[in-house]
Every structure is written in structure tokens, then in C-alpha cells.
Design a protein around this nucleic acid. Structure first.
Lengths: 220, 220
DNA sequence: GGAGAAAGCCGAGCAACGCTCAGATATTGG
DNA sequence: CCAATATCTGAGCGTTGCTCGGCTTTCTCC
């Protein structure tokens, strides 16, 4: 019964030679092209393999199942977004909330340009597998919120667990909805303004019943 | 080649006899039970038919494909939610925003109780088919927002197209996320408060560049 | 009540899918 | 050149979504 090093689980090999890494990239790119051109219904494993120029067996050497391909695409996209967000946030002062929020929103939106047909499917695939997606973005957003709160005590009302959850899901919900619905608003400044307003509105301290006499002039 | 009244499209029949209506209900209920017990992966058409006690052919007399079953469940759920929302909103005064918002939020949340395993799959199925889901809720929410704005000029900042879009998707995004992630927050008062705060914060008029000077830093 | 029409139900079986596995082919190091 | 390792191949298995010809139940009207 002496088990070998890779006996039962049949783990998918990770590409060691450069050639193999290229194969993986080719498969992911072929998937993206099929998604962009013919939608998720056309994304069959045989079609991916054919379009990538490999046999179906090759595909299954790197991906354990069809969903793993979408998961890999999602993972790459998320890493890209998180990188952008972190870069932007590192060089901004949390003591001045609005520009920081605006830059974060802008970075988030920047990652949603182009390849809409692909993103739609990728977003939906992320939502199918619970523990990834939302929590991954929480990894950047929660420290950000904490920093904002800590450095703005008094000017910013603490959110608490529920507030943070809602704020984070609200933003991603709005942006994802725009992407999934292919809304023409996605690229517009008005959309960015609205997102900033959403965040700032929730951060601003609540002043009891109403703010009646604040400023008659709104945003126009 | 004289065509009959129903020649090519093979539309699925709608149940005319009471027996058929029961069949449809039984199929939907069987689907819900399978979803709740074993998740979406187990929801195969043959299994649904078997669990409902009908043959697979019967199922396909009323539903053109597997997705239509989920769509029907979604449609029922949405109609239920919209009904509750309309009932609540009809008897409240738009000139007093916060209670109105709170009641709307509470009605929305009330519809998300129980049967979480079912709701998860139903929500995801709605998001797969663009033109329904989001726009259906817009049908209630947009009049509501318009009424709020019209009766509160000055106290409430106009949202505009982008603002309305973002606010609506933000709320549904937050609630759906809680459902999809099976967050324990879903039933709590803190969650309701956070949602109200999200909406009220966005309705409150923005005071130009920064809020810093609006309140002379009450505490801390 | 009975006969014909209409509505509803059945389930073997087909095309297409995701995926496996035994072996062919390429690459590397000596 | 050869052996060892990494990579690739594709026929084919089990399952799925779904169709279609025919059977059973219910309605309708005399």
C-alpha cells in the first residue's frame, strides 16, 4: 500500500515549463474571446480547447473543471483591481475623505472598462462560489474604511460591522449591476459622482431627524 | 402547407384546467425543495420531474427549458416583493422621508426571510437574464424616488438618472449580497439601520466640496 | 349515459455536454 | 544518440437537457 507522491487526489499539474504556462494563457484567452463573441452559453470545454488549438485532454491537465476556467479569469481580474486600488490608496491621505473616496471609486471603475461580454460572465461566476469574490475585495476595502474612520473621528460616523458590510456590497453591487446590465452609464462622470455621493453620504455623520436648512443649491 | 394556428413556435401551453395549474405548482415546489436540500447543482430536469411525481415530458409542456423554471420562481418572488412594497408605500407620506425609507427597507428585508437555499439560486438566475430582474424593481422604486424628490425639494437633493440607478442597485446589491453570502446580518436591526443610513445619506443634500466645516466636530 | 374532442400525461431515446485515461509526442540532460 | 520527464492527444463514457409519438383523463354536448 505504499502510496506515491501523487496517488489519489489527481491534482492538476501547475505549469513548470514556459510552454505550459503559454498553454494556460492561451486557454484563458480563448475562453475570453468565446465569451466576448458568443456569450456564456457558447463556452463549452470542447469549444475552448478547439479554439485554443489544443485537445480537450490538455485543457483538463490544468483546470479540474469548466468552472475553474472562469474562476481563474476572475482571480486574475480581481488581483488586477486590488493592485490598482492598493496603489491609489497608498499615496493618499485618509484625513481628507472625499478625494480618497473619489480616487478609489475611479480606480474601481477603471478596471471595468472594455471586454464587457467577458466581465459579465466572470462576475456571475464569482457570485456562484461564495467565499472568494466579496471577501477578496473586503481585504482592501476594510482596512481602507478603518483608516478613514480612525483618522476622521467626529467628521465621519463609525460604520460598525453592518455599516461596513452594506457600504462595501452597495458599491460593488452598483458597479456590477452596471456591468451586468451593460448600462451606458458605466463610463460617465455622472456615474462616478453618484458613487462618490453614495459613499460620502453614508460616511457623513447623521444629524438626527433632518438636515433641512443645509444648502439650497444641490449639485447642478 | 396551410399553417395552423400554432404551427412553428411550439409555444408552451398555459395551464387551463385546474389539474394543470396544480401540476405547475407541484413542479415549482419540487424545484424549491431540491434547491433547498441539495443546491443548484442537483436541480436537473429529470430529478425535478421525478421528485414532483411527473414524467419529464409533462415538465416540458409548461416550461420551455430548465432556466424557465428558475425564471418562474423568480417571477413569483418578485411579484410578491413588489406587492408588499406597493402596499407599504401607498399609505405613507413622502413628505417625511425617513419613515418612508425605513418602511420600504423593512418590507424589502421581510421578503428575504426563510428558504435561503432557494433564494440564492433564484437571485443568480435573475441576474443571468438581463432585462427582467433589475428593471422590475425599478418599476416601483423609481416612482417612489420621484415622489420623494418632488415633495421634498430643498430638503432632498435630486438624484438624476445616475443617482437613481446607483441608489437602487446599491440597495438591492447589498441585500442580495447578504442573501447570497448567507450573512448572519440579514435578520438583524443593525442591517436595517445600515440600509436606511445608506439611502438617507444619499438623499441628503451635498454641501459642496467637503463636509468638514458643516458640523464643528461634535465629539472626540 | 355515451361518444368524440380537447387537454393533459408518459418515457424511450437523441444530441451535446463535461470529463477520463491509455498512450503518442515533445523537451531536457547526459 | 538515448532515457527520463513533461506535455499533449482524442475516442469514448456517463449524464444532461430536451423531443416526439402515442396513451389516458377530463370536458362537452346530445
Amino acid at each position: 500500500m505504499a502510496k506515491q507522491t501523487k496517488p489519489l487526489v489527481t491534482l492538476r499539474k501547475s505549469p513548470t515549463q514556459a510552454r505550459a504556462q503559454e498553454t494556460v494563457d492561451t486557454i484563458l484567452e480563448a475562453s475570453a474571446q468565446i465569451l466576448q463573441k458568443d456569450g456564456e452559453g457558447a463556452l463549452t470545454t470542447n469549444r475552448i480547447a478547439e479554439h485554443a488549438g489544443f485537445s480537450i485532454g490538455t485543457l483538463y491537465q490544468y483546470f479540474p473543471n469548466r468552472d475553474a476556467i472562469l474562476a481563474a479569469m476572475a482571480s486574475r481580474e480581481q488581483a488586477h483591481i486590488l493592485g490598482k486600488l492598493e496603489a491609489v490608496l497608498a499615496r493618499l491621505d485618509p484625513a481628507d475623505p472625499e478625494p480618497m473616496v473619489r480616487e478609489a471609486v475611479r480606480a474601481l471603475l477603471g478596471a471595468f472598462r472594455g471586454r464587457h461580454g467577458v466581465r459579465r460572465a466572470v462576475i456571475l461566476s464569482v457570485m456562484r462560489r461564495l467565499p472568494d469574490g466579496p471577501l477578496a475585495s473586503a481585504g482592501v476595502a476594510e482596512p481602507l474604511l478603518a483608516a478613514l474612520e480612525a483618522r476622521n473621528a467626529g467628521r465621519v460616523a463609525p460604520l460598525g460591522e453592518a455599516g461596513g458590510f452594506v457600504l462595501l456590497r452597495a458599491i460593488t453591487g452598483a458597479v456590477r449591476a452596471a456591468a451586468i446590465e451593460r448600462s451606458p452609464l458605466l463610463g460617465t462622470p455622472a456615474f462616478e459622482d453618484a458613487l462618490v455621493r453614495l459613499v460620502m453620504g453614508m460616511l457623513r455623520p447623521t444629524t438626527g431627524p433632518a438636515v433641512a436648512a443645509a444648502q439650497p443649491a444641490g449639485g447642478a
